[in-house]
Design a protein around this nucleic acid. Sequence first.
DNA 1: TATAACATGTAAGGTGTTACATGATTGA
DNA 2: TCAATCATGTAACACCTTACATGTTATA
Lengths: 176, 176
Amino acid sequence: MSLPHALLGLLAVEPGTGYDLTRMFDSDLGRYAWQAGHTSIYPELAKLAANGLVEVTAQGPRGAKTYDVTEAGRAELRRWMLAPQQQGRVRNEPVLRMFLIAALPRPEALELLDRIEQEAEQGAAELREVRAEHPDTAPMLGPEGLGQLAAEFGVRQYEVVRDWARWAADRLRAEN
Amino acid sequence: MSLPHALLGLLAVEPGTGYDLTRMFDSDLGRYAWQAGHTSIYPELAKLAANGLVEVTAQGPRGAKTYDVTEAGRAELRRWMLAPQQQGRVRNEPVLRMFLIAALPRPEALELLDRIEQEAEQGAAELREVRAEHPDTAPMLGPEGLGQLAAEFGVRQYEVVRDWARWAADRLRAEN
DNA sequence: TATAACATGTAAGGTGTTACATGATTGA
DNA sequence: TCAATCATGTAACACCTTACATGTTATA
């Protein structure tokens, strides 16, 4: 049940349409943090609006509705963000595959580890370029900040996966 | 739809009951990779058995049924593990919160970043001890391996979060 | 002998995904 | 004028969570 909070957060960073939010979930955000399709976003926006947490502040061309967070919405977002974390839910298919390598026969395990290492290095390289586009002076809070926080985390994340895969492959090869 | 594959993988590592699987999802695995409660596990096991991917190989005391993977199950697991990855689904509430820091006012953002840094360091410290319990010579494949792969990944993961939070806090404090 | 851990299940309700559906605007 | 992009929605189905429900075995 984090979708409403994700929407609240994204709109608090920058107001936008359901379509804008949909694209955000397709990029950075959906890659490391949270995913959602437009078919869950639109109904959820309607629900948030009905509860007074967001409101339509502008109407654009193709029936486009720009949503913004209300004061009540901002309060709820702060409450959720600052609440004791207590193990939020995690579902990460790539990481699941990584651990289940222990279930594979040796040759396949090594093959997969090597592939993971390569793909992670590639991902890191791509993201390093994205990161380089952000000027070092851009503000950390607001729309620029979200991108920076995500890109920086993403690079480090990929590097961890790459190093972990190398470590595991080395250890596995060392076993006689 | 990774639950069946998670179960297949865990049983391929080591046969066990639905109860055993439930406990696994409560530990390491559920923390970084995938979560599931017993109420989804038992029906899913029945479904996998009906499809011939797992089978009951032993009956224990309290009506306990020990499941093992069949040859067909192993084949399906290999297929899924080695299939081109193409962006598996990721849903990570802690990471979502991290990115949405960009939506907070400065004081709260700094407060949260400091808290994240501390909690991550604590998590890393705890896991380093868990990791130290695994002998360096234990085999990487099989039940010991799963724990090792997860512990090693977990330590590195926590360290990344800690370093990232420190980096973000430093950058934010540096802004005038 | 009582408590904790073991062990399995169903049902209702909520959430999320896939497929279906429509239409406007912009730019090549 | 055609294709891509923008923009929003509904319906059916699959999936997951919470609450309910039951009973056994080991151990302190």
